[in-house]
């Protein structure tokens, strides 16, 4: 059972354990998956796949798709480290505590991560980079600012989960407002590889998405856990509540992923 903590509440030992588990997984596949296969999946499922469905982004299944994606990574990190309590931390970007420190995601935030944690010398490599480089890239604050608590509260106040046309144009949609105003914005705030299609090259991807998942869970607790839309039927081009999300296993539907108390983790 993983208790996902805020980065503000982690000990230095916990930060080091998390970074080391990622490094270990980068070179040691477990449970039939490799770290780079997560990057492949992110690239593949960002696009509409051959079923003409947008599984991971710009669609209602944005939240449950990433919930399963994170849950699998957390499980793989537990396996590779031999620590069943290892957890994905969340980065509340409205707070003052930064994940970019020497003992955690690495302290370099203005270009090539050329030394320290997540540098090549430390044992990290970039994969399928659209930027011609062998170094992880960051440009903190170049492309966007961090969302404020006011922006987060405003997004959390949208009461409709999602609605037609179920894409990135929907205005009155909790899913789309979160995806654009919080999720996209923080990808752009970090910049470098976090702004690219292959964003999971940066370990902070997981801390960011963990906070997105936590915000959805908080929203679910106030609006209802079983509130995914569209509910049933055959809405073209999107995942319905009881439809399997690729590339995950049979049974991995939004409905099956709605309640985190059944998924083996909680938020502290």
């Amino acid at each position: 059972m993983a208790v996902r903590k805020s980065i503000a509440d982690m000990t230095s030992a916990e930060k080091t354990a998390f970074a080391n588990a990622l490094r270990q997984f980068k070179t040691t596949p477990v449970n039939g998956r490799s770290y780079n296969s997560y990057i492949d999946q992110h690239i593949t499922y960002f696009a509409r796949t051959s079923d003409n469905i947008s599984h991971a982004h710009q669609s209602p299944s944005f939240f449950p798709w990433h919930r399963e994606y994170l849950r699998l990574l957390e499980f793989d990190l537990q396996t590779v480290s031999g620590n069943p309590n290892l957890f994905l931390p969340y980065w509340d970007w409205t707070g003052s505590v930064s994940p970019f420190t020497a003992d955690f995601c690495g302290a370099i935030t203005n270009g090539s991560v050329s030394s320290g944690n997540f540098s090549p010398n430390w044992g990290w490599s970039v994969y399928r980079s659209s930027i011609a480089t062998s170094f992880l890239q960051r440009r903190l604050g170049q492309n966007a600012s961090r969302p404020t608590a006011t922006t987060v509260n405003n997004v959390q106040s949208y009461s409709v989960y999602d609605q037609s046309p179920w894409n990135s144009t929907v205005s009155n949609s909790y899913r789309n407002r979160n995806e654009i105003e919080l999720h996209n914005r923080v990808h752009n705030y970090v910049g470098g590889h976090m702004g690219t299609r292959e964003a999971p090259n940066d370990p902070v991807f997981w801390l960011h998405h963990c906070n997105i998942d936590r915000l959805w869970w908080l929203w679910q607790q106030s609006r209802g856990i079983d509130t995914y839309q569209p509910r049933t039927g055959t809405t073209p081009g999107v995942i319905d509540n009881t439809e399997r999300m690729r590339p995950f296993a049979t049974g991995k539907t939004p409905s099956a992923l709605r309640d985190i108390t059944t998924l083996g983790y909680s938020y502290a």
């Binding site: 696009a47 947008s54 659209s130 930027i131 480089t133 890239q137 170049q142 910049g191 702004g195």
Partner: peptide
Amino acid sequence: VDRLNGLELSAEAGKGHFH
């Protein structure tokens, strides 16, 4: 160019996909 920050595009950047 701003985002590349002095670096170049790789071949991966030329591969498209649909949304």
